[in-house]
C-alpha cells in the first residue's frame, strides 16, 4: 500500500473542503477502497474518513418516499421496516450481496461507488483502460466470463458489480451530493453512472471531491417487487445475472406497468426500458415475459467467455416476472 495521510472529517463542510486537495479521497466503510489500495490499484495521497458524519438516518421524505443517509450501512438499510415493506426488492438485493460482515461495514454511498471486479482491473501487471487510461483492455480477448454484454465498447467491458444499485435503478432513486464545483445537486441514478465510451476510467458523472450525502427513493411504484440473483455459488458471490423486477397487473391479468433493471450484465446498473414499455398493456403470460427477456438483451454483445450471460439473462427475466405474476 502506498503511504497516505489520514483525517477524520468533523462535518460535511470540512469533508468537502478537504477533498479539494490533490489526491484526496473519501473513505466510508473502506471495504472496496482499502481492498484496492492494498493492490495499489487505488493510490490516494490523502484519505478523508467520512464514516462518522451524521448521515446515518433513514427518514420519510415529504413526497412519501424515503431519504437514506449516505453512511447508513447496507445492513441497516436492508433491515429498515419501511424498506422491507415498501421496497422489498431493495432489501433482497442488499442481503444477496457480499457477506454479513461486509454489509455491516459498507455504506450506502460506498456501495453505489464501488468499482468493478474485472480481474484485469485488479492486476496491475496487465493493461486496463479503466485503471490506466489508453493502456488497452485485457478482458476483450482475455478471461471475460464475468464481464459485460451490454454497454461495452472497445475501451472497456467491465461490469458495475453493485446489487443494491440495480434495485435503486428500478426504483428511480435520486442521489444528493455536496461539493465539487456545485453547491449541492440531485442526480437521478440513471445519470449517476456513465458508459465507458471515451473515458472508461470514470465510472460516474460525479466530480472529484463531490460527496454523496443521501439517496432518496420516490414513493414505491404500484405492483409486486422482486430481486433474483444468479451466481456461481449460493451466497457470497457477485452476480452472473441479476434481475430487479416490478410488476403491476389488473383484474384481467393485463400488465398495468412493469419495471426491469439488470445486474451482472451491463457496464452500469442496467435499466431495460424498451422491455418495460413492451410489457405494458400485454397479458401477463409466460410468452409476454419471454419476449421481455428477448427485448431486454437486444443488441447484447458476448465476448466468448461471457456469451452465456445473454440467454441466462433472458431466462432469468422471464422467470422473475412469471414468479411475480403468480403472486400478483
Amino acid at each position: 500500500m502506498r503511504a497516505f495521510t489520514y483525517e477524520r472529517a468533523k462535518d460535511i463542510d470540512a469533508a468537502v473542503a478537504a477533498a479539494q486537495q490533490p489526491g484526496a479521497r473519501f473513505i466510508a466503510g473502506g471495504t472496496n477502497l482499502l481492498d484496492l489500495m492494498k493492490v495499489e490499484v487505488e493510490k490516494p495521497a490523502h484519505l478523508i474518513d467520512v464514516s462518522r458524519l451524521p448521515l446515518k438516518d433513514i427518514a420519510d421524505a415529504a413526497d412519501g418516499g424515503l431519504t437514506i443517509g449516505a453512511m447508513v450501512t447496507n445492513t441497516d438499510l436492508a433491515a429498515d421496516k419501511r424498506v422491507m415493506e415498501r421496497y422489498p426488492m431493495l432489501t433482497r438485493a442488499i442481503v444477496n450481496g457480499a457477506s454479513a460482515q461486509l454489509r455491516n461495514q459498507a455504506s450506502t454511498g460506498g456501495n453505489l461507488l464501488q468499482r468493478t471486479r474485472c480481474p484485469y482491473f485488479y492486476d496491475v501487471s496487465k493493461p486496463c483502460n479503466k485503471r490506466q487510461p489508453n493502456s488497452g483492455c485485457s478482458a476483450l480477448q482475455g478471461i471475460n466470463r464475468m464481464n459485460a454484454v451490454l454497454g461495452g465498447s472497445d475501451a472497456c467491458i467491465a461490469v458495475h458489480p453493485s446489487d443494491m444499485a440495480v434495485a435503486m435503478m428500478a426504483l428511480d432513486a435520486r442521489i444528493e451530493t455536496k461539493g465539487g464545483s456545485k453547491k449541492g445537486r440531485t442526480i437521478p441514478i440513471a445519470e449517476l453512472y456513465r458508459q465507458p465510451e471515451g473515458s472508461p476510467e470514470r465510472d460516474t458523472n460525479l466530480e472529484p471531491g463531490e460527496l454523496i450525502t443521501s439517496v432518496t427513493l420516490p414513493p414505491a411504484p404500484a405492483g409486486k417487487q422482486s430481486y433474483r440473483k444468479v451466481r456461481d455459488r449460493a451466497s457470497y458471490a457477485f452476480a452472473l445475472v441479476s434481475v430487479a423486477a416490478i410488476l403491476d397487473i389488473d383484474d384481467e391479468r393485463k400488465v398495468r406497468s412493469a419495471r426491469l433493471a439488470l445486474g451482472g450484465v451491463g457496464t452500469m446498473p442496467w435499466r431495460a426500458r424498451e422491455a418495460e414499455q413492451g410489457m405494458a398493456g400485454a397479458i401477463a403470460s409466460e410468452k409476454t415475459f419471454a419476449t421481455a427477456g428477448t427485448v431486454a438483451v437486444d443488441g447484447a454483445q458476448g465476448h466468448g467467455g461471457n456469451d452465456f450471460k445473454i440467454p441466462l439473462a433472458r431466462r432469468t427475466i422471464a422467470r422473475a416476472f412469471t414468479d411475480l405474476s403468480a403472486k400478483a
Binding site: R8, L47, S51, A100, Q105
Partner: peptide
C-alpha cells in the same frame, strides 16, 4: 458488538 472484517478496516478509523 457488530461483526466485521478487520482486514478491511483501517485501525485509525476505529479510534
Amino acid at each position: 458488538g457488530v461483526r466485521m472484517n478487520s482486514c478491511l478496516s483501517l485501525a485509525a478509523a476505529r479510534d
